[in-house]
């Protein structure tokens, strides 16, 4: 996995496939409250984009997240989730009580949708970075040889 496979068919199809995978992942994330989808699935789809780049172009792919960076990004994702939970305490509610978020909406129920979107962004970042980090850790031994 250090060098990648490097055939011309793979390179060309990879260039077509990866942007669509990533855009579909973001669609599944932001549309997750209206259609099948959500944070976990979007994270898996975004990770597929990065993993494809790793498999086809190798470790030196332009589109890559390094192992330590991936762990930091996963921590940021978990932190976003927890921060939204604690921010509702600051605004006078309970932990993860989205109804107290300080946004102006027509219907109080929409605050819940906004809060759900926020924590799903956190979940997406965490799942994506964790999958990439696990792949990076499991294939690191091949680089040393």
């Amino acid at each position: 996995m250090n060098r990648g496979f490097g055939s011309i068919v793979l390179d060309t199809s990879f260039r077509v496939l990866v942007p669509f995978t990533l855009v579909y992942g973001i669609y599944v994330l932001v549309h997750g409250e209206y259609s099948p989808g959500g944070g976990f699935q979007a994270g898996a789809l975004l990770a597929v984009g990065v993993v494809l780049a790793r498999l086809v172009q190798g470790r030196e792919a332009a589109f890559n997240i390094k192992g330590t960076t991936a762990l930091i990004v996963a921590g940021i994702g978990t932190f976003i989730y927890g921060a939204i939970g604690f921010s509702t305490i600051l605004f006078g509610g309970k932990f993860l009580e989205y109804g107290k978020l300080p946004f102006k909406v027509h219907d109080p129920a929409e605050l819940h949708a906004l809060g759900m979107l926020g924590i799903e962004i956190g979940v997406t970042i965490c799942v994506m970075a964790t999958i990439v980090g696990i792949l990076d850790a499991l294939t690191r031994g091949e680089d040393l040889s």
Partner: peptide, 20 residues
């Protein structure tokens, strides 16, 4: 089960690391 699937993925990663 949605969360269980993703958790099973990451625990499989830990098990593979232990096997290595």
């Amino acid at each position: 089960m949605l969360t269980a699937i993703v958790v099973s993925l990451s625990t499989t990663g830990v098990a593979l690391a232990l096997l290595m």
